[in-house]
Amino acid sequence: MTARGSQPSPAPGLAREVGEPASRTWVEFDDPAEEGRRLRCDLTWLTSDYRCIFGAGCSGIDADRPDDGCCVLGAHFTDDEDRDRVEAVVRDLGDEEWELREDALADGWTETEDGALKTRVVDGACILLNGPGAPMGAGCALHQYAVARGLEPHTVKPDVCWQLPLRRTYRTVTQPDETEYLEVSIGEYTRGGWGPGGHDLDWYCTSSPLAHSGDAPLFRTSEAELVELMGREAYEVLVPLAEAHLAGVAALHRVPEGARLLPLIVHPATVAARAEGRRS
């Protein structure tokens, strides 16, 4: 087994969270590519300044392992297709790309937890995570594989990994005339998205100003993931709606000094981060 070290997490003040906004601005529109399907998108979240800060100040969900980000639990697979896609890349990873490849060859790279298949946890983190001292650099071996080959990371990583911080949910809506449509919601992967255990995480990024430091809104920086979740045509409908929301936010910034932006308009973690000058 290869040991992987850890370093102190950021100071508590920097890693604080502001809580999840109870009120949000949502937009709904019919899916132009699929009849009987309607998209419901959280503009408060999708226009936030969130960006993943793994390796750039991330506190990690386990205070004892700040360098491991949210990779300490391993990744569950959504279905066979998800597992097969990842397995194809795992087979192609070499020793120079994957720190724990020998461990995987000896004992496998997956395990079963409560009847569900997932990536194996080794030395306290996902077996596919390269530690801080790894020759190939710290980070997900799958993600690094994609970047090195000019691929979109979501095409090689488990669904649960690449979708974070986005969350897609489905609901069948019955209208008064008894007709139905499928509602697809795209929103924030909050603590609650992890299930009951999510509220026990030592820190979580989406509600922390520390991670709201992007130089472009989330719907732009996560274009590839959003297109995968909702389709290209639906994404092209979303973009002008999100831009209009941002234009409204800009107008609100011109209100009298001392006025406060409502959380349904701007994510509170983004507001806090801008106040601290964290935008990169």
Rank of each mutant, 00 (worst) to 15 (best):
R167W: 11
P256D: 13
D215K: 12
W203Y: 15
A106S: 12
S23C: 05
L93D: 03
C205D: 09
E225V: 00
P132Y: 00
L100H: 12
V86R: 02
A146S: 02
G115H: 06
S6H: 15
L46I: 02
Q175H: 06
S280P: 15
L261P: 14
G57P: 08
E178Y: 10
C140A: 04
V147H: 10
Q175P: 00
G139E: 04
E102S: 14
L241I: 01
H154S: 10
E35D: 15
G5N: 13
G195A: 11
Q7S: 15
P8E: 11
L105I: 04
E276Q: 14
T119V: 07
R16I: 13
C71G: 06
C140R: 01
T155P: 05
E35H: 13
P217I: 00
E87G: 08
G214H: 09
T190A: 15
E233C: 05
D103M: 08
G5I: 10
R149G: 04
R65Y: 13
H76Q: 13
R83E: 14
V27F: 00
F77M: 07
V227T: 06
E276F: 02
G60I: 02
S222E: 13
T44Y: 02
R16W: 09
D159G: 09
S59A: 15
Q175E: 14
L229H: 03
E243D: 14
G214V: 02
R279Q: 15
D107W: 10
G231D: 01
D68I: 00
G108V: 04
Q163M: 15
E20M: 13
A146P: 02
G258S: 08
S208I: 07
R51L: 09
A247N: 08
S222L: 11
E81P: 03
E20F: 14
Y145L: 06
Y170T: 13
Y189L: 12
R220S: 07
T47S: 03
A148D: 10
G187F: 00
D202E: 12
H212V: 09
K118L: 07
H245K: 05
D79R: 08
R278D: 12
R279I: 15
G193V: 04
T44A: 03
D202K: 08
P8Q: 08
L142R: 01
L117G: 01
G36Q: 11
S280V: 14
L226E: 02
V173P: 02
T190N: 12
S280E: 15
A75F: 10
T221W: 01
Q7T: 14
L93F: 05
T112W: 09
T206I: 14
D42C: 07
H253F: 10
L128I: 08
G19I: 09
G192E: 11
A22N: 07
T119H: 04
L246C: 06
A106Y: 01
L264P: 00
A75V: 09
W26F: 10
P12N: 12
P10C: 05
C58D: 02
